[in-house]
Amino acid sequence: MTTQDTPAEPAVLVQGVSLRYGSQIALEDVSLEISRGSSFALLGPNGAGKTSLMSVLATLRTADAGRVVVAGHDVNRAPRKVRESIGMVFQDASLDDRLTAEENLDFHGRVYGMPGNARRSATDRVLELVELSEWREAPVRTFSGGMKRRLEIARALMHDPEILFLDEPTVGLDAQTRERIWTYLDNERHTRGLTLLTTTHYIEEVDRADWICIIDKGRVIAQGSPSDLKQKHGKPYLHVVAALPEIRSALLDTYPDARTTGPEQISIPADGEEFVPEFLSRFGSRLHEIRFEAPTLEAAFLNLTGRTLRDRADGEREAQRAAGRRAGRQ
């Protein structure tokens, strides 16, 4: 269950979903539930299965097993109803650069079957929401990355969806734009009960969510509110600075989980209530600096998913995209 314990039907219900690409497992027995009006974050390393799950929810892929209900409609039995109920912001830019902002929105309205008057009023509303009204007649190719992303969010909201899927919506954007985007989305959530399902790499953004689901190798490995996950899976750390090499060696010998994190800095997991007093009594007088770090989501995430790099699949995909871009310029 998510944070909002209401008897109402959930916005999204996923039960035992599995998906394979050939012999590769993309999703395995995934189950989760998203309450209406909540903000749900899907967190996982590269290749964990986040985008695959989004694709299944958005009816772009059919799961091999399991049941998925979105906005009260089964994705296999009523895919069209599901599509009418959702908005989607993709990880990669998907605007038409040769059209203006207004033309991109108008196109979206048409493919969602909106009549002319509804399209015009929705265009005005969403452009105002993302503060791009003055740019409505500008070609999208003249937009910055942040403006394009704001326009994509506007486009996803054009047809007034119940649920908004955002696949890495703020990747590559500066802090100001990221903050502004979350303000727009929170406004929509609070004013009209929009449900948000977000995947992101930015841990601080996940902290804003009501409920977090951590997924790795196609499996759900933990779920909970941000504070629950921090408490259950995050570790407090002591970051200490020791100028003398023999002190640093002694620390590393005494605490096998300790790691060198700077020229003279060592980070030590501070598990248990008695750890800090005991540590201070042994080493306190021989250290230059001691800093305590409360459990974080990042620590919880790394504890659950490990520290091995998962960038191979992403690199291959990026190389393919780059080749496409090069060819497009020729």
């Binding site: 772009l60 069209r80 599509r83 009418e84 989607m88 993709f90 998907s94 486009r155 995209r321 496409g324």
Partner: peptide, 18 residues
């Protein structure tokens, strides 16, 4: 191919249009 490479096709395929 352009639409497929640059995601525009997905935007349309996720719409209610058959």
């Amino acid at each position: 191919i352009w639409d497929r490479e640059f995601g525009f096709l997905r935007e349309v395929l996720v719409s209610p249009m058959p």
